[in-house]
Design a protein around this nucleic acid. Sequence first.
DNA 1: ATATATTTTAATCAACTGATTAAATCTCTT
DNA 2: AAGAGATTTAATCAGTTGATTAAAATATAT
Lengths: 211, 211
Amino acid sequence: MKAQPEIVKNATTEEKIKEAARRVFTTKGYAATRTRDIAEESGYNLALINYYFRSKEKLFDIIMLEHLQLFIHSIKDIVDNQSTSLQEKIEILIGHYIDMLIKNPEIPLFVLNELNANPAKLIEKLGFNQIENDNVYLVKQWKELAGAKKTLTINPMHIVMNVLSMTIFPFVASPLLRDRAGISQEEFNKLMEERKKLIPKWILGIIMTTT
Amino acid sequence: MKAQPEIVKNATTEEKIKEAARRVFTTKGYAATRTRDIAEESGYNLALINYYFRSKEKLFDIIMLEHLQLFIHSIKDIVDNQSTSLQEKIEILIGHYIDMLIKNPEIPLFVLNELNANPAKLIEKLGFNQIENDNVYLVKQWKELAGAKKTLTINPMHIVMNVLSMTIFPFVASPLLRDRAGISQEEFNKLMEERKKLIPKWILGIIMTTT
DNA sequence: ATATATTTTAATCAACTGATTAAATCTCTT
DNA sequence: AAGAGATTTAATCAGTTGATTAAAATATAT
């Protein structure tokens, strides 16, 4: 009888396999990734990936969960902060995400694919209790603003869409920008740094002027 | 010796297989799609897909090319029209794309994935001569505007990013909006119809106010 | 109607893939 | 240094997958 890996163990091999798997999964996707690719990328033997993670799918689930947590992590603190204005919150949120995405540009497409292929599984992982929509301070501030400005008649979902779109989509489309528009990695990152200030300004303009 | 399918032949079977393949490929992706899935979805025998299309990859390439043409088709006419203003062009373009995406909401993620996994192959398919950036009338109009307004100092790429983001991204993220934000298919489409008018207005505001 | 070509089917193949196994090597405690 | 447990390896397995084949069924032309 083979002993399963215990809680305390040499973390380096397991961690290296996980890192290799992260690289391969995010570039090739789940189905196109062979356990042999992960073994090769990690430099370890094929059997180790099943030894440490039981199955390809379990390994994938672990990586997906960690990526999702990167998305959700610390949002609640920003969104529920009572000492920042609505405008400040938007600015901090967007800056926070652009920083994270410059470090991990492959995450959005990776997550969006899983969301498309397996919505139920992923929504369950996200947990519906992560963000209680109604009790968040940002939502209160938004409602106050909406109540004050009589002109604000568009569906608030448009604003959410715009923030997410303008922040995340460039990363999803970056291969197009690079290969087709001839923008280098450095130029792209510089553009995204600029957008940290620009997007909040644009969003505020949209909120204030849309009748 | 087996005869290859000739130019004139019963198009229905081949077309039905292609349609089935389109459905399966766009929902599951290339690697996760088995030729048996396509056969089952089409209702025809497994061997037919290789009989008509030589290989799974060739079938995929055909479908990908057709989707790309949907993206590029008729853009040149809009963009190079000398009798419409810059603002009108933006409005027509966005309306055109939203119409197309409401009919084919699965295309963007499908194409973006291929772009990510195989940029060179896809760029070659797109053809660099499809849009000659400099000789297009829209570019002339933009340069005139940029010359007139001294305040227009941001990189024009930001505007391109914003148009593409606000138009395309909602479709890529629609499973999130549906399952997480509880928006139905009808509500989503209604929001996108609204955005046909809203996005051009927002873009114009961004162009005019960004210092 | 008969022959010819096209279309469709069932059966099969070789390569690939995720997973398992048993043995070998390493690490650490005693 | 001996033993026990943890880690790593090579070999192998059963199931899957894209593709091929030969034959049957159908359509088309003469």
